[in-house]
Design a protein around this nucleic acid. Sequence first.
DNA 1: CGCAGTTGCTCCAGTATTGCATAAAGTTTA
DNA 2: TAAACTTTATGCAATACTGGAGCAACTGCG
Lengths: 400, 400
Amino acid sequence: MSTSELFRTPPRHAPQNVEILGPLRSGRATSRAALAKATGLSPSTVASRVEDLIAQGHIVEVGHGESRGGRRPRHLEIRGDAGLVGCIDLGVDRATFGLIDFAGNLVGERHLDLDIAAGPHDVLSFAVAQLVDMVEQSDVPSHTRLRGISVGVPGPVSSTTSRIVAPSRMPGWNGVSVAEVVQRDIQLPVVVNNDANLMAAGELLDADEAAAFANQVFVKVGSGIGCGIVSGGELYTGSNGWAGDISHVSVPGAAAVPCSCGRTGCLDALASGNALVREMQLAGHDVHTVEAMITLARDSHPLATRLLRNAGVMTGGVLATIVNFFNPDRLVLGGVLADSAVFVAGVRSTLYADCLPMATEQLTVEVTRHQGTGGLRGAARMFLDRVFSTEGLPPLTPAP
Amino acid sequence: MSTSELFRTPPRHAPQNVEILGPLRSGRATSRAALAKATGLSPSTVASRVEDLIAQGHIVEVGHGESRGGRRPRHLEIRGDAGLVGCIDLGVDRATFGLIDFAGNLVGERHLDLDIAAGPHDVLSFAVAQLVDMVEQSDVPSHTRLRGISVGVPGPVSSTTSRIVAPSRMPGWNGVSVAEVVQRDIQLPVVVNNDANLMAAGELLDADEAAAFANQVFVKVGSGIGCGIVSGGELYTGSNGWAGDISHVSVPGAAAVPCSCGRTGCLDALASGNALVREMQLAGHDVHTVEAMITLARDSHPLATRLLRNAGVMTGGVLATIVNFFNPDRLVLGGVLADSAVFVAGVRSTLYADCLPMATEQLTVEVTRHQGTGGLRGAARMFLDRVFSTEGLPPLTPAP
DNA sequence: CGCAGTTGCTCCAGTATTGCATAAAGTTTA
DNA sequence: TAAACTTTATGCAATACTGGAGCAACTGCG
């Protein structure tokens, strides 16, 4: 069964309710007037759409906001109990599961170890079982059901077929349609995206009005290296879906470490968490995770510190090219290595050294504020945006 | 006087006539039905807008097209005699001038030597005088007047202020508003863009329907190196306007040649036309232009060939990172060096060697089809798109 | 307290767009 | 040659959006 069958095909020019619900969900707007400003729609249009959404039971009016010198705004909220999105953020050796309600609240969260090499069927069956269990264990109202599943995977996802293509870290997953596999276990709409793309989308959620239309590059450095691009406030995935691949850029002047792609000296083979841990092991240190290594560096372990800093420098060097080319106004660092101050300092110093001054003048370089849950939040956003891009879900019962 | 004063400020939600005129001007559509397909608008909407545009005198119906198994399409054309755009493509030591009518036809063209270091006032006064002279000399109908001026410059143009910022090849132009300077000589609307961006826009003009929404990277390698980005069929200029700057990317393993930006080993300092000519001179060859060097390489001159090939390899190496990151479906090479088969081969070989196979699988790498006039055509497009983004110009006299 | 000023929301006439039904004008097939 | 089909264009009722007028509700000032 294809994914699209579980999504309603909407009328061509129906109101794009995501325009209203998006700012509401992210808290970027909480009243009709604020929505009009945030969306650029006229106050009349906003009023009319809000009225419809209230009638359908998606939005409720809850009291008033503060006056800013005039009439107080009537506070609007998405009804969280309208449904749940099951979010799965798959890593290579671990996974994060989350339940996010239609208002965007994370109402449940689990972090578990998991070997992605066990293959699509085992991994996804386990994941779905986790989500179902989480719904049963949760204390959401009984009518708040799971309405769909959003999956992030550590590999390239084709934008045309939604299949995973040539994933270097996911043996056995090449050509797999995650939606098809999941839908053998549970009959729900499924969306799939690359994990770095989801984190990039998640990063936009609590951005203010201006940043919501920003050009942004999100770099995830964990066991591997990934990158999500936001152009004009929307996720940019390129012509085929694998835009943002910076793993296999050659690092100038680096050692010829062999890479999974068949070449040597790729950024991923030199600066990823996996690469660093292996370097530590080669030097005789009994380290098995990046986290352990970062802890060592915090305690000023010389080799760990040097490796992390160097990884930051190499990553920053690649990002300098990207920043010159893409001219973003925001660069966000995520993934485990973003927790390492040494790594981040390495990125920053190289970036400012190698970029044109004009390119970095307006650029902010930050560490993500949602370590751990950014991917889940982005996953929910992608699902909900798709579902509500029109009136994809049936009208709900009116608010109590 | 600011540019905007010479552009009409349009009503907020008027029909975007550029949607109709764009495909018509580029020849991507020539009938109502084709326009509906190209724009995604409904047939009724297209019919209504076309009717308006005919009434305003912008479009004429001229006979019929070929039947494709049904009723023959009624052929639509833009009235070329509605006006002229004066296009100026400034280079460092030469300039190209063009007159392009509102139908997109190049009705006049001049190539002249010119030293950009003479400064904004002298250069632009000369340029405007050329355009005025070209109009007088041309045999367009007397009512076909110059309606605006579109300028391309070999340096970064701020997207917020339209001023030239920190141009390394344009001494005396820093902070200059080209529109202001031009408007001292002639009272017409003026738009300014970076030259590589204009060439990228020009490359889209005769693209087919699919390619018109493509993600495309245009690389201009002439005396300097520039790059224009097209995302989803629209010019992408980044947050500040200088997206696409690849001149100052460090080339791995290259000589530490000093660059105008203050660093060493930049692509521009190694692979640009200027750099190559200087290398030839250092080796004792009496060569003063890139063109001469390309001619030598065609005759198998060893050093010229080696330098050109090497420049291609270095450029291709940088572009590999860009292609992995941006995942375009089209990469177009322009500028003088694109005339050199050796250079192009160098780019291609490195690109296919250094990119991920998935990134190049669907990628086409081409040489521009409009050497010389691509910038002019792009300049006209940018001007006309802006003017007709609504009914910016007054209704014309009805067609004769 | 009254009144001006501000902010939030609603009502309404006018315009833009759409889907569908229909007509127009061809080609192909039997 | 008639019937069936294709493609192109138009007419019309329904829907969506907008700007602006006007109402509602609140603040602050004299």
